[in-house]
Structures are given as structure tokens and as C-alpha cells.
Design a protein around this nucleic acid. Structure first.
Lengths: 304, 304
DNA sequence: TACTGTATTTCATTTTTTGAAAGGTAAAAT
DNA sequence: ATTTTACCTTTCAAAAAATGAAATACAGTA
């Protein structure tokens, strides 16, 4: 029996829905189904009654909710107790992330981390997430927030923090570009004529390239830019259309100066996932491990 | 965090010796070492202080002994509670094993099983362990005690119960055979002349064949016999020498009527391992699973 | 200096876990 | 009555993790 399974169980006990619970736990439904079954087998009793319509807790299942919660609480308590007796953890930790991340994902993370390890000095550097992996691999930074690449390099640990849709934005202000857009709205030829503001590197660039390829579209590139936030600024000024993570847009001071362009079919611009990365080896370092565990607690597994 | 790890930890905390603890836990020393390290990492604290001479518990380690014991006790308690509330488990279970096994390995097993599941009817059949795997595979028996083969067939679950050395025995009574042995003691030519009582099938036969091959020895086979116990009887009566598991000999009423023959080099007759086997699929059956879990508890993991 | 006892690393292999897709089932909608 | 929908489970091929033999590292001891 595994704490992971207790987390799965509690999530399922709450949602009473395999698909939703599995999503919350960041695993597939089959995995959740099997883990629960294994737990039941190990206990020698059914925890849920499931027919194809519904999932309900059995009597033993209800009792196990208490057991699981108590067990996890005890574990957390013991862990905390170990930290205390060891004296506060000190040291330095360097982190690289985008400006937007500091407003969103890492904002909560820093709060928790600071509270739990007030003596660790944090060294925060912001920049284009496209460089995150490189900075971490070269050892320039301990950890970084990165857009999840399709294939992680070996030896790099990854922890998902969240997802964001990609949106295409154009200026709302009066300018030649907005006229062009208004006159050609919903005509396929529009896309051929739009000047694009492209990211220089990174997963975002890959996504846009893939999107264009699928649409059989050769974009007119107006400018290459490094850093998601700057792309919003340029787009709002009428330089061209840009593709940015929705979360970046939401935080932008220029939010009101841009409009969305719909893409057809919807979802053909695959959303990106944002995560924490770190050289596997660096996780041995107690300081790095401390941050990682805070992040795990906060983002990965509501229970555990 | 895993209950398996708690078991490893407790064993190591008791022995304070990786090699011995790993043996008790039926894993290799590297495995134990890594699991402990992983546990320590997850807890964010050292549990043991090890230099190459000694292993000692840290302060946190001592506290974790209590934690681990309490956790496992709670788990067992909860499991028991589930059984109770479900009403006693009933059904029938068929088992095949050697006569010797009923005196040794399964004796304790039956005691525990009976106490925990008094309503399950046990159907016990004894015979030559060479047939165990076949009986289980064909579904003739639910579970069986077998001599561990070098390669288990797919779909068969196996649980080690114990090991036994193999010994070669000869009659002590006055007879042509014992004279032959006494006159040729320690001469290599002795082995060529001895009449062998060979098992008909099974792992034991394989071991003896392998031994003979290594010794470049073509044994004179006096008789083929099915069933380990019978071989002791025949050997004691002067029919020939036999190779049997030490544990069979120890239980035999003819123990005093036979002598050991030493083999050179020592250990060239590899010892056998005895285990419980069962069709993987049959483990789904609560009744079979019940026995299996009793056996696990008793033989596999002192803590868990 | 060689030897011994012991914990840990390395590395190739085996085992386990994983998720996409397919399957199955039963209510709801047409 | 048939199709659609919702959703849990199985299958299967691929990826990841765990495993142990052998090598390594290290510190006392002969």
C-alpha cells in the first residue's frame, strides 16, 4: 500500500467519478481504476460500488476515508517533526521563470515555500521560458519554470504546474492591420496576409509552426521576439498578430488593447503545459528538494 | 511511501546490518539500500548513520520506528475490521503438497489460516511435489507447495516459503551397500559403483542430473521413485543411495537408519527453494487470496 | 601491504506501470 | 427500437522503474 493510492482514493471518494478524479490526480482513468482495484484487493474488501452510471462508497469505503486522511495527516506531521528537530533549512536557491509565472504559478509556490523554509534565500531571474531547459541543464539555475516540451531531455525532472490555452491576438486600435482583419473576417485568405509576431525559440514556436503546417499556411513573419510578454505589447501596438498563452494575456496590462482571433477548427492550436524543471541530480540537494516538495504538495497531489 | 519500505526499515532498524536485513526481506542488499535512501529522501531526513563499519539509528530514525510500527498496526487493524464487518469468509480451498510440507512449512500456515478464516473448508492432498505445478496449472488444485523451478511458467504466482539443502543418504545397516561405501570411502571411484535411487520427475531430478554431469558421473540407477519421503525409506532399507532435501530427512522416521555422504566440493549440490504456487488468476478468488495473504504475512515479510 | 567485511554504484535485464484505444454496458435521447 | 451518450474496465505495446550481479569504495585488521 502506497500513499499515492491513498491520494487517488481520497480524490475518487470526493468526486465519485473516475474520469474527473483521474484528471485531478494527473493520471489516466485506467491507471486510477487499476490502483483502486489493487487497493481493494490488498484490503480484501470493496471500497466503491460502481455500475456504469455511478460510483458510491461502500461502508468500508467510508471508513477508509477516515483511515486515509488520518494516515496522511500522521505522515505529514511526522515529516514536519523531522524538519523541526533538524533546525531550519538554510541555503540558496536560484530559479528562472517568466514574468507571467511570477504572477501566477509561482506566486502561491513562493508563499508556501517561504512559510515553510523562511531561511532559504531565493534568487529569482525572469526571462523567456524558451531558455529554461538550457539554463537548468547547464547548471546556471537550480530550477526553472518551463513550457513542457514534447520530449524531456534525460536527467531532467519535471513537475506539471498547470496548462494554458494558446490564443491569437490582434490589435483593437485603428490601424492598417485591424482594417485588414475586419474586411477579411472569416475568409481563409486572411491568414495569408497577416503579419506574424513569432517567438524566436521554444515550444511556443513549435506549436505555431505545427499549426501553420496543418493549415497549409506560410505566415508572413513581421518580427521575432524573445519573451511572451513582449509579444503582447507589440501586438497591441499594431505590429502584427501574435500567439501567446492565455495566461500571459490575462496578466498583461495591454489586455484591453487586443482582440482574439478565432482559429478553425477549434483546438487545432494545442494548449501548452507549464511545469517546473530541474536537473534530476540537483534534487538530492536538500534545498532544491524542499522547493520541489512544496511544489508537489501544491500542484501535483492535493492529498499526500 | 510504501508499506514495503516500512517493513524494510523496521528490519534494518532491528538488525542494523544491510546484508542481513536484506536477506530477511528477501531482496538484495542494493535494493534495500536504495529503498532506505528513498525513504530518507521522502522524509527529508536521515534515518540511519552508516559508515562502512556500522549502521546506527538517528534520533529521527528512532522516532520513525514507532511511527512505522504504529502505521502498520493501524493498517492491520483496519484490514481486520473490514473482514469482520463483511461476515466470515466461507468457501472451499484445495491444496496439494508433500507429506513433509504438512509437517513443516504448511503446519504454521494452516494454524494461522484456520484461526483467521475458520469457515473456509480446506481440502488437502499430499503427493510428489514434482506434480505440483501441473496440478495448479490444470486447475486441479487451487494452490500447491512446490520446489521452485528455475523458470516459472507464465501466469503462475510464486511465494517463497523456505529453503532446504540437499543431502545424500545411504543405509547404516549392515548390507552389501554399506560395506561398499566403507571400503571405498573418499575414493572417487566409489560414486561410479553406487546404485542410485532417483526421483522420477521434477526439480530434484534436475539437480541430481546437473550434479552428476558436473562430476562427470554416470550413475547406476537402481530405482525411480515418486515422492521424496519414499526415497528415504528405500535408502534406509539398503536399496541404494538417495538425494533428498534435508528437511524431508529430518522429518523421516528412518532418520537414524541412514548416514550422510559428503559431496565434494561442498555446495556443488545446489540447495532447493520451496514455495507456494497458484495460478495468477486464481488469486482474484477471495478464498485463495486469503490463504495467500496469510502465507505472505507468515513467510515473506515479517513486517507488513 | 594485502585482506576482510560491508555499504553503495553501475549497468543490463526484468518487471511493473502507464495510457491510448477498444470494449462493454446501461441509461437517455431520438 | 435504435442510436447516442456517459463512463468504467480491459487490452496491448511502449515507457519507466525496480532489481540484482558484479564492480567499487572504504575502513578497519592481519
Amino acid at each position: 500500500m502506497d500513499h499515492k493510492q491513498l491520494g487517488y482514493f481520497l480524490t475518487l471518494a470526493e468526486t465519485l467519478h473516475f474520469a474527473r478524479a483521474s484528471e485531478q490526480c494527473h493520471v489516466s482513468a485506467p491507471t486510477l481504476s487499476r490502483q483502486i482495484k489493487q487497493l481493494e484487493q490488498e484490503l480484501g474488501t470493496e471500497l466503491f460500488i460502481r455500475d456504469n452510471r455511478s460510483v458510491r462508497l461502500t461502508v468500508n469505503g467510508k471508513a477508509f476515508v477516515d483511515y486515509a486522511q488520518a494516515t496522511l495527516a500522521k505522515w505529514r506531521q511526522f515529516k514536519g517533526q523531522c524538519q523541526d528537530s533538524a533546525g531550519p533549512l538554510t541555503g540558496e536557491l536560484s530559479m528562472y521563470c517568466s514574468v507571467t509565472a511570477t504572477y501566477s504559478f509561482t506566486y502561491d509556490l513562493f508563499a508556501v515555500f517561504r512559510k515553510q523554509f523562511p531561511a532559504i534565500e531565493l534568487n529569482l531571474n525572469t526571462g523567456d521560458p524558451a531558455f529554461s531547459i538550457n539554463h537548468v541543464q547547464t547548471g546556471k539555475e537550480d530550477v526553472a519554470v518551463a513550457v513542457a516540451p514534447s520530449h524531456l531531455p534525460q536527467g531532467v525532472a519535471y513537475l506539471p504546474l498547470g496548462k494554458s490555452k494558446l490564443v491569437i491576438i490582434a490589435p483593437t486600435m485603428d490601424c492598417p492591420l485591424s482594417e485588414l482583419i475586419n474586411s477579411h473576417l472569416n475568409t481563409p485568405s486572411l491568414w495569408e496576409q497577416l503579419p506574424f509576431i513569432m517567438p524566436e525559440h521554444g515550444v511556443l514556436k513549435e506549436r505555431i509552426d505545427a499549426f501553420c503546417a496543418r493549415q497549409k499556411l506560410t505566415p508572413k513573419v513581421y518580427a521575432h521576439v524573445s519573451g511572451h510578454e513582449a509579444m503582447v505589447a507589440l501586438a497591441s501596438l499594431g505590429f502584427g498578430v501574435a500567439c501567446v498563452p492565455q495566461i500571459v494575456l490575462e496578466q498583461s496590462p495591454f489586455l484591453n488593447q487586443v482582440q482574439h482571433l478565432e482559429v478553425e477548427p477549434k483546438g487545432s492550436l494545442e494548449e501548452i503545459e507549464i511545469g517546473l524543471i530541474c536537473k534530476q541530480k540537483r534534487l538530492q540537494d536538500p534545498v532544491v528538494s524542499a522547493l520541489w516538495q512544496c511544489a508537489t504538495q501544491l500542484f501535483s497531489n492535493p492529498y499526500s
